[in-house]
Design a protein around this nucleic acid. Sequence first.
DNA 1: AAGAGTACCAACCGCCACTTC
DNA 2: GGAAGTGGCGGTTGGTACTCT
Length: 210
Amino acid sequence: MVKTPCCESMGLKKGPWTPEEDQILISHIQQYGHGNWRALPKQAGLLRCGKSCRLRWINYLRPDIKRGRFSKEEEETIVKLHAVLGNRWASIATRLPGRTDNEIKNFWHTHLKKRIERSQLQLGYEASSAGTLMDMPQVVVDATSSTVKGKLLANDSLLSRKYPPAAGLGFYGTASSDISGDIIGNNSRSVIGDEMEFWYNMFMNSHHKM
DNA sequence: AAGAGTACCAACCGCCACTTC
DNA sequence: GGAAGTGGCGGTTGGTACTCT
């Protein structure tokens, strides 16, 4: 597939959006919807590429966006889902109404990842006894060898959709039995239920083979 | 008060998947 | 079946705000 560079054509604006541009985009979408993102900026009279318009709308201007700090519940949900799904932010976002994949991704990198890394330094299983899920150690599940290593990590770089856990490149989840109860239990047949259940089963199968 | 270091987050880039022709 | 167009996703960057010294 030939790649289609964003904002390739000259004269398209980049960088932060102005309130005027926001207003134009909002009123255009409210009036006509966003059937075709590529055509939208032209129709709306914006000097932006369609991709930029789409991102701005989805991550910032959408009326149902929830802004502000993540609640404790949201944090825990992110940690749990990340343990099962890896860096599939869009999937995680479907579980958190009003939150965008971008927001979750940023939050992960700026807060949760560090927190987990810190808890790894404290090392270990002793710390886990203290016990919130946020402080729990992580257990690596090697999907290829079906082994679970008692190792702590927070390496999410291998867990993108390009290298899903099934590829054997390191699937990990928290060593917590409440993953199933919470995620699968509460989410059965939800939007992402099937997909999550698949990865969950992968995790559990590997786990039980220990 | 000012400079350095750090944290945060909006936005861009490149790639992949899906759809259409 | 394959090329082209488009949407969507995750990784990354760069600017700004904030904190520390």
